[in-house]
Design a protein around this nucleic acid. Structure first.
Length: 276
DNA sequence: GCGTAGACTTGAGGCG
DNA sequence: CTTCCTCAAGTCTACG
């Protein structure tokens, strides 16, 4: 599911829902979700803590707690949060972790679901968080992500462009949907060796990455199947997809036919007519 | 060091 | 209708 725009939408939703509230109760329904911590240690680390704020880094969700630790979630493919009033509803299938939170304006239940069970949560002290943060590449919507910075990242690799854009140690937050869409918008063949781009092509790609991500954040992400925001709302960027998941469709720019190929074991979509 | 294949996991959709 | 096969938003590990 979630790439940068989906994680951003979820983080903003969590900030609105739980920032300032205190965690009263924690239940771990699937212990793999918190490994290598034990469920008991995880519950103990969170219970009684106040959530100061919630933000996104790359595709990770990080809540800062009042003891200085970070409660970090990696959503992977199908991880999903829901926020609901404490009274309401029973849990649905695939529930991994649930928390009860209260604040001055009342409380609610935060639930973490994950059909495919890849999603994980950790409690990190400041040093462990710094280590994680340092391992991740530049935020593509930050001002550190310059054309020059992108050129430097691409120069280091002869692998296909699409694969390099997926490398979280280079650019942090792009996943398969937006990497493919950015290549399309930049009119670049995703199979091109990353280090073969000239200056104007790098400039086009830089602009395309930012345009695609900003637009997808504004649309609250792409809902192809599982992804929903914390209140259950779908994203709307799926209507704007030009190539991802659209092999055989007509290219809206040149009238060619969108093709699918496999790069490093994952689908790549592009229009052979106008991506060079 | 670099790049790719495989593994993890469950469910949906296509095909016959 | 059932069965089998392929594929899926991510990332970590193991090889060549």
């Amino acid at each position: 599911m979630p790439e940068l725009p989906e994680a951003e939408t979820i983080a903003r939703g969590l900030q609105a829902a739980i920032a300032g509230r205190r965690i009263r109760r924690v239940r771990v329904h699937r212990q793999e979700a918190v490994e290598p911590m034990s469920p008991a240690a995880f519950r103990c680390a969170l219970t009684g803590r106040r959530v100061e704020s919630v933000a996104r880094r790359a595709k990770w969700i990080a809540a800062i707690l009042d003891d200085g630790t970070r409660w970090v979630t990696q959503l992977r493919m199908t991880g999903r949060f829901t926020w609901s009033p404490p009274s309401a509803l029973r849990a649905a299938p695939h529930l991994s972790v649930s928390l009860l939170l209260y604040g001055p304006q009342g409380g609610g239940v935060l639930r973490f679901y994950d059909v495919r069970r890849f999603g994980r949560m950790w409690i990190l002290d400041p040093a462990a968080w710094s280590e994680l943060d340092a391992r991740l590449g530049v935020e593509p919507l930050s001002k550190d992500f310059t054309r020059r910075a992108l050129a430097g990242l691409l120069d280091g690799s002869g692998a296909p462009l699409r694969n390099v854009l997926l490398d979280q140690e280079r650019v942090a937050g792009l996943g398969n949907i937006y990497a493919n869409e950015a290549c399309y918008l930049a009119r670049l063949d995703p199979r091109r060796p990353a280090n073969s781009l000239d200056e104007s092509e790098v400039a086009r790609l830089h602009r395309a990455i930012r345009t695609v991500l900003r637009s997808a954040v504004e649309r609250r992400g792409t809902s192809l199947s599982d992804y929903r925001d914390v209140l259950g709302g779908a994203g709307r960027f799926q209507a704007d997809l030009k190539v991802y998941g659209r092999s055989g469709a007509v290219c809206p720019r040149c009238g060619g036919v969108v093709a699918r190929t496999v790069l490093a074991g994952r689908s790549a979509f592009f229009c052979p007519g106008c991506q060079r």
